[in-house]
Amino acid sequence: MAHRPKRHSPDKIPLEMTPMIDVVFQLLIFFMLTLKIVAIEGDFNIKMPLAPSGSDIPELDLPLTVRLSAVGGDKVAIELDGKALGSFAELRSAVIEKVGYNTGEDSPAAKQEVVLDVDYDLHYRYVIDAITHVRGAPTSEGKFVPLVEKIRFGQQRAPGAAGG
């Protein structure tokens, strides 16, 4: 490393460091104060086509209906095609049992559609829980195997009309 000369010759102008250090510290403090650590966010894509579905979908590929009912203040009752299930883990198992894993475009799970029929007053987190459990299954290596990609909302229910 080159050492700074102790004495400057008359033809050399010494560089004033103080303003630069002032500005640098101002910048440093600005970035430190504006730093906000946020959790990583992700998306679940849902396509709600405007054209009436049915004409291009084979009749055999009837959608699976996941019914989520608000029970009491903050509980949920889950049904898959009318069959009551105890938890979201059971919902995932039932979906795997019906359509298997999504192993490619030709697999039944890739073609299958799931319709979410939810109560108006149900807390939104249960909708995300249902989508999570229908869309993927964890493996022992900590990764996720895709299940059903096509998820959409069904007909909107009236406020206060829980159950049914």
Binding site: M48, Y120, L122, Q156
Partner: peptide
């Protein structure tokens, strides 16, 4: 996470009436 699902559906319905088709529901990892 405590919002009403029906209101989320209402938002989607309103968007669909204006020809919006693609939706992404955001969640935290």
């Amino acid at each position: 996470n405590r919002a009403k699902s029906g209101v989320v559906q209402q938002v989607i319905q309103d968007c669909m009436q204006l020809q919006f088709e693609k939706f992404a529901l955001r969640a935290v990892q």
